[in-house]
């Protein structure tokens, strides 16, 4: 729209200095875009170029040897998914409950709603390493969970919460007000209105929130170092320490001489997982929207 409005204007002859400025701006803007795209391709290309050779079915299904220099990442994948599972199990109910509360029961001026919203803003700004400190002090020590998948997952849940709540709340607020009025005029209970009308219509927002949360949890490293720990054996319970994929990348590249090759492969797997989550969620969301919308 902006383009259609401004394009013919830009084509009108201007004074010489104006034309010069216009050209300079054009070069700067396109140059920036090219730079960003170039660096992106550089990162991705480097990961794929160096990582894809080490990647194999065996790499995904065998245990690491020699501190990760050889062998695969099977126990690490299991730990990563277990941490993610714990995180989601804690996040989803709390986030959906809070989001519904914020969107449906509080106004922007309400006091309790304001307290909750401010808390979430604070939580969203807390650096992940501080969450790591908190998780270590609270989950590992005070609750006695030790270095474990449970501690790590719960710490991640605290981090993901504000993201998921925000996005879910926005999804709910985007549901047209007419539905609520219509439902009230038909004397439907708020429970029915919520579960039959609002939540189904808000599914794209919910999915977006979940994807953000999963993305954050998968990508996180700093908060896990002192909560879920480094142990790269196959975990046998949620109370075992388990090494997440992101920590594996870190450890291989920083602490293990000659671990670069496998670090590339692990980083590629990590990025691949994130892309997969994004892609699947995008497809689901589109499908849902098509089902909901009028043909």
């Amino acid at each position: 729209m902006a383009d259609a409005l401004t394009a013919p204007v830009a084509a009108t002859p201007a004074r010489a200095d104006g034309a010069l400025r216009e050209t300079a701006a054009l070069v700067a803007v396109w140059g920036t875009a090219a730079l960003i795209a170039g660096v992106f391709l550089w990162i991705l290309g480097e990961l794929v170029w160096n990582g894809v050779g080490a990647l194999s079915w065996e790499y995904l299904t065998s245990a690491p040897r020699e501190a990760g220099r050889a062998g695969g990442i099977a126990p690490i994948l299991v730990s990563t998914l277990a941490i993610l599972g714990v995180c989601l199990a804690a996040t989803v109910p709390i986030a959906f409950g809070s989001a519904v509360f914020l969107a449906e029961y509080t106004s922007d001026a309400g006091r309790f709603g304001r307290v909750v919203r401010t808390s979430l803003d604070v939580l969203a700004g807390v650096p992940s390493i501080v969450f790591g400190l908190f998780g270590n002090a609270f989950f590992c020590r005070t609750l006695g969970l030790g270095f474990s998948i449970l501690s790590g997952g719960l710490t991640l849940a605290c981090m993901a919460l504000p993201l998921v709540i925000r996005s879910t709340e926005e999804g709910l607020r985007a549901v047209p007000r007419e539905y609520r009025m219509g439902a009230a005029a038909l004397a439907l209970s708020r429970t029915t209105t919520l579960f039959r009308l609002l939540l189904p219509a808000a599914v794209p927002g919910l999915t977006a929130g979940l994807v953000l949360g999963i993305g954050r949890a998968l990508a996180e490293t700093a908060a896990l170092i002192f909560t879920s720990g480094y142990v790269d054996r196959m975990p046998s319970s949620l109370l075992d320490s388990g090494r997440a994929l992101s920590i594996h990348v870190y450890d291989l590249s920083m602490n293990v001489a000659g671990g670069d090759r496998n670090a590339y492969a692990s980083a590629l797997v990590l990025v691949g997982l994130l892309l997969l989550v994004n892609g699947v969620a995008g497809a689901l969301s589109a499908l849902w929207r098509r089902r909901l919308a009028a043909p």
């Binding site: 007419e178 009025m181 005029a185």
Partner: peptide
């Protein structure tokens, strides 16, 4: 609201 129904300016069938 069961006794007194309401119809709005903009038609608002549920999705």
């Amino acid at each position: 609201r069961r006794r007194v129904g309401m119809i709005f300016q903009k038609p608002n069938p549920f999705p």
